[in-house]
């Protein structure tokens, strides 16, 4: 393959593949960084397992244990919800940036050539 043709092959085939791979990598990375799998799996779990085990059979103790568990789970849920919100926000930004970069990449040669021609005309003027 002639070098000039190889350049376009590299640009539109190899680099496009790389960009998509890196984009996918970043999407996976945020899933890892925010521990999404564990977070979803433990969405309603008590915060740091802070639910005291049931001490006895008396109704009062059972009620107290249930309340503790509920509060702990509520705390856990709220914290995890914050984490998930951050994750979704960053993931959305990543998608937007990634798609934009991808589109720019695809059209970049045309854009650049147009800019060069346009700049020359403006300079001449």
């Amino acid at each position: 393959m002639p070098i000039a043709l190889a350049y376009f092959y590299w640009y539109y085939f190899e680099m496009t593949k790389d960009i998509l791979r890196i984009f996918q990598g970043y999407l996976r990375y945020w899933v890892f960084f925010f521990s999404i799998k564990q977070t979803f799996r433990s969405l309603f779990s008590p915060w740091k397992m802070m639910d005291d085990p049931q001490k006895g059979n008396l109704m009062a103790e059972i009620f107290e244990t249930a309340i503790n568990s509920l509060i702990s789970r509520a705390i856990g849920f709220v914290m995890r919800l914050f984490l998930l919100s951050f994750f979704f926000a960053i993931e959305a930004i990543t998608i937007v940036v990634g798609v934009s970069l991808f589109v720019i990449w695809i059209f970049m040669p045309i854009i650049l050539i147009w800019i060069i021609i346009y700049s020359f005309t403006k300079i001449n003027v």
Binding site: G25, F32, F33, S35, Q38, R41, S42, M49, R80
Partner: peptide, 14 residues
């Protein structure tokens, strides 16, 4: 990227 570590992985741990 993953060498930075993660956040929240042990929130469910006691």
């Amino acid at each position: 990227l993953i060498r930075t570590g993660s956040v929240g992985g042990d929130w469910a741990a006691g």
